[in-house]
Amino acid sequence: MPESSEQSILLEIRSFSPVVPKSKKRKRRIQIIPKDIYPITIPEKLPIKITPCPIVEAILEIRFVSNESWTNIPGLLYPHIREKYTRDRKLPLADWPEEMRRQDPDIVHMPLLQYFNDQYIIQIGPRVIGLMTIPNTYPGWAKIEAEMTWLIAQIQKANFITEGERLAVRYIDFFPKLDIFENISLDMQMSGKALTLPELNVATVLRKDKMTARLAISNSVIGIAGKEPTTGSLFDLDVWLGPQDFDLFQNGMEKFGAIHTLVKQTFFGLLKPDFLATLKPSYT
């Protein structure tokens, strides 16, 4: 096992199988997890539902390059989706001059327009298109999958994607009035002592097979629970595949399914069992 900090992830994740012999277990040490091992133990069974559902938004996103200019893309797509998506709105970024947007790599993949109905939002920009659930109304994976299958067929008809760049599934969960760090298998230490702070934000990147996962966790955000804003914790997980690992129109939905599975495995793999039990997990 490598000892160099450059080669290893130094987060202590309790769910990782112990290597230290039992006799030495009392002397609690940070184990160094090799980079090529996914540092989260994947549960054997994954719930299909928890209550209350913490999912604020689920987003299925395709980043792409196009030989079409942005001014043409909405016009190519809209005729194919207008029967289901009757309303639209321009996002604030759309009011920025194109020259300014073009010069900022941080916003190049941001959407400029949304088309929506009562269940979903399609958002689109010069290099991105995504399907998003209406906040706090998660309909379940099976329904999202069916809608995305339909959307990909419409995108194919619209014919503006030259090449796929990234295929991603992102779930944003909010836990009101709760410090998520007390309920997940992820410990932070400072000077050898557990870090329990009222404002703690952690972001990291994990890799499994060909997938990359960006995990951002915070115990100090304001979200909406019911209809009222409240403080709480955020669990934001974005998992994606790169350009050589999918073909949108050949195997896009299959790949979305695989990514979604890793999202679930990561989320439930990090929850402590006693916390998960309070969320009334349903497996059937």
Binding site: V65, S66, N67, V108, G242, P243
Partner: peptide, 26 residues
């Protein structure tokens, strides 16, 4: 970095294509 982020469809004389993500990966 420039090629990946600042060269969109139509760069140069107007016919330039954006860099291929698969090419970047390779």
């Amino acid at each position: 970095h420039h090629f990946r982020n600042y060269y969109n469809a139509g760069w140069g004389e107007g016919q330039g294509k954006p860099v291929s993500p698969k090419a970047v990966e390779a």
